[in-house]
Design a protein around this nucleic acid. Structure first.
Length: 214
DNA sequence: AACTCGGGGCA
DNA sequence: TGCCCAGAGTT
């Protein structure tokens, strides 16, 4: 796909506006990154960071994780919510890593997707950050913002992924991912977006479609 | 496609 | 108090 000037303008402005953008979860060890990403689902990042770092004191490897009872793990991650599903999945996943992958994290999206609790977003986060495999993690913010702005025109996550990979230079994938998330959280919110505070309205497809306020 | 999991942060 | 949240699994 040819990158239009309008799109490249938006990309440059995103990078400028959110020059400080980076992941809140800064785990580089593949297993820790995998666990942290699973824990972060639908939860507040600051709390997840705290809980995850404490968890890794006792569970930073699949072996150590498997030493914990489901009750202990639940209690350790309780404060981030959705804890029963996450605890169950983390223990099941760690067992699979030990049984089938020699305690290592598999390095392909397809294998990661087979693990319990690992979906498209988590798999892409892990391979792109830990294994340098080209992938863009499309979460709710990335999906919503990139479609609203008109960086892509997609009605599902996979198409959004593919189109973003065409539109954005690979060197910028990680950076832009975080820019889109920051913009989505602070300005381009799912409900009641703060368009009056937004720097992109003159280029935004979504804004152009909004009914004019009197 | 809709529903469920969920405690904590914040207005 | 009510609303919201860097997803994934189940029905």
């Amino acid at each position: 796909m040819r990158v239009t000037k309008r799109r490249s303008d938006i990309i440059e402005l995103l990078k400028k506006e959110y020059w400080y953008a980076k992941a809140e979860l800064d785990f580089t060890n593949p297993y820790e990154l995998l666990v942290a990403t699973i824990l972060s689902a639908q939860s507040t990042d600051i709390q997840v960071n705290k809980v995850t770092k404490e968890l890794f004191i006792v569970g930073g490897t699949p072996e150590k994780m498997s030493d914990m009872s489901v009750e202990e793990l639940e209690n350790r991650i309780k404060s981030i919510g959705l804890y029963k599903n996450k605890a169950k999945n983390l223990l099941a996943m760690s067992k699979i890593l030990l049984d089938d992958y020699n305690g290592k994290v598999p390095e392909s999206i397809e294998e990661l997707l087979q693990l319990p609790g690992v979906g498209r977003k988590t798999a892409n986060v892990v391979v792109s950050n830990a294994f340098n495999i080209p992938a863009i993690a499309v979460d709710t913010h990335v999906f919503r913002v990139s479609n609203r702005l008109g960086l892509v025109d997609a009605n599902n996550v996979i198409d959004t992924e593919k189109q973003l990979m065409q539109v954005i230079n690979r060197d910028d994938w990680s950076k832009l991912h975080h820019c889109l998330i920051f913009h989505g959280r602070r300005v381009c919110k799912a409900r009641n977006p703060l368009c009056s505070n937004c720097s992109f309205t003159d280029k935004c497809k979504y804004y152009k479609k909004l009914p004019k306020k009197i």
